[in-house]
Structures are given as structure tokens and as C-alpha cells.
Design a protein around this nucleic acid. Structure first.
Length: 246
DNA sequence: TTGGTAATAT
DNA sequence: GATATTACCA
């Protein structure tokens, strides 16, 4: 079912430049509209570097009733170096993390292409370090949102994201971090209970399971700072509303 | 086999 | 310190 990999994306997006870019439902899918809503403050589709593959394979789109046809990617922005999801290959010791970030836009392809096994390169060394780019994270968040927190399990997420080279471990790890973050924020925000937004119409609870009580988690993307400032205001107003209700 | 978590590495 | 990987256990 989910394995329709015709539109499979690669974590380390190739240097492709000609394939029609298509961004996952950012407007087309109402579900994702909501998701985006949760991520107020995130870079817009325009700001974010597009992935050169369809993020949602047709089969999956159908499953979630996502209208891909109404979504078109800007087909002309491939020059951002960081654009592509990447697996960093720390040769033996990583020279530096801080600045490079962009330069290796293409070597990652080779690394990720092998996926599970080949990620180790021929040297039998360590696995290439995966970098969760905003795009990837966005997909991740969307996947979690789609599945529902309860059902957002590594395997399901991997399938849903359908990214080549992305392993269950990668996702599990990210999920761990994600949950930690959520816990932290929810703890911090106990005073600021933001009302959960209505679930997207196309929300699919987690095949055969009950829908999660709340998607607040998904909402609070654990994104680096810049994303949240604007969200803060939203939260604030929501909080006020909440308090009034009480 | 898979998910969750802690420990460890970068 | 943050983030990703690995190891271990349920």
C-alpha cells in the first residue's frame, strides 16, 4: 500500500534540476493547510528550498485524499545549497559543523542512496550523520500529524514520509527528540494551554485506531527559534481566549 | 520485530 | 549544549 515508491524522494536529494517540483499539499490538502497552520512562523514554501520530488506519492495522497494536482512547486529555485536534505559524511572526524552546511549539496546523494547499509560508505565506519533539514522535519511533522501522536511510530512515519535512506532509527531518534521537546514545551506551557485546532477534514486517525486526543504536539513544532516568535502571539491570544472560557 | 529510552558520540 | 546514533530493554 504505502510502498508505492514511484515518487520516492531521496533524503539527499540529487542534484536534479529539471524534474517538476512539487511541494506537498501546502494549499491543496486541507489537512496540510492545518498542519502549516500549526507551524506558524515556519519558512514559507517559497522560502524553503523545494525538494525536487513529490513529497506525497500518489497512492498516499489518495489515501489521505490529498489533492496533489492543485499543488505546484515553484520550479525555479534550486540554487539554494542547503536545499537538499543531506546526510553528512563525517569522514573521520568532522572538520566543522558550523559553516559548511551548504557546500556539500551533492555528495549526500551518494551517501543516502544506499540507504540503510550504504550509508556507512565503503569504509565500514560510522553511519553518515543525518541532518534533519526543515523540509524533512516538516514532512516529519506532517507525518506525525497525519498519523496522530499515538500512532506516530517510527515505522509508520518512515513509510509515510517515504524518503529514501531514511531509516526507522533515524525517525525514532528524531521522534525521541521531538517528544522530549513537546514534553518540555508542554510543561513550560502548562500555563499556556493552547486549544487544539480542529482536526483536518482529511485526518486519518491511524488506521483502525482511535484518533489522538490532541494534536497540540504536532502544532508545536520543535523548530529552532525563529519560527516561534510569531507563534507566541498566537499562543498568547489563544491563552486569553482559554482563560476567558474558564 | 518494533518502539521507547538512556547512553554515547559528534 | 544541541543533535544524531547506538545500545539495550520491554
Amino acid at each position: 500500500m504505502l510502498s508505492a515508491c514511484s515518487g520516492r524522494r531521496h533524503v539527499a536529494a540529487s542534484s536534479s534540476s529539471s524534474s517538476p517540483h512539487r511541494r506537498m499539499v501546502d494549499a491543496g490538502g486541507d489537512a496540510c493547510g492545518r498542519v502549516l497552520e500549526w507551524e506558524t512562523g515556519l519558512p514559507t514554501a517559497g522560502e524553503m528550498t523545494p525538494i525536487s520530488h513529490q513529497l506525497v506519492p500518489p497512492a498516499l495522497a489518495a489515501a489521505f485524499r490529498i489533492d496533489l494536482s492543485s499543488v505546484v512547486l515553484p520550479s525555479s529555485s534550486v540554487d539554494s545549497p542547503t536545499s537538499h536534505l543531506s546526510f553528512r559524511v563525517d569522514d573521520e572526524d568532522d572538520e566543522d559543523e558550523g559553516e559548511g552546511e551548504g557546500e556539500q549539496g551533492e555528495n549526500d546523494d551518494a551517501t543516502a542512496a544506499g540507504g540503510e547499509g550504504a550509508g556507512r560508505g565503503g569504509r565500514g565506519g560510522k553511519k553518515a550523520r543525518m541532518v534533519w533539514t526543515p523540509e524533512l522535519h516538516h514532512q516529519f511533522v506532517e507525518a506525525v500529524a497525519h498519523l496522530g501522536e499515538k500512532c506516530a511510530m517510527p515505522k509508520a512515519i518512515v513509510q509515510l514520509m517515504n524518503v529514501d535512506g531514511l531509516t526507522r532509527e533515524n525517525v525514532a531518534s528524531h521522534l525521541q527528540k521531538y517528544r522530549l521537546y513537546l514534553k518540555r514545551t508542554s510543561t513550560t506551557a502548562t500555563a499556556t494551554p493552547s486549544p487544539p485546532p480542529p482536526l483536518p477534514a482529511s485526518y486519518v486517525p491511524c488506521f483502525g485506531a482511535k484518533p489522538p486526543p490532541d494534536t497540540a504536539a504536532s502544532r508545536s513544532a520543535f523548530l529552532p527559534s525563529p519560527a516561534r516568535s510569531s507563534d507566541a502571539t498566537t499562543k498568547h491570544s489563544r491563552l486569553q481566549k482559554e482563560m476567558q472560557q474558564e
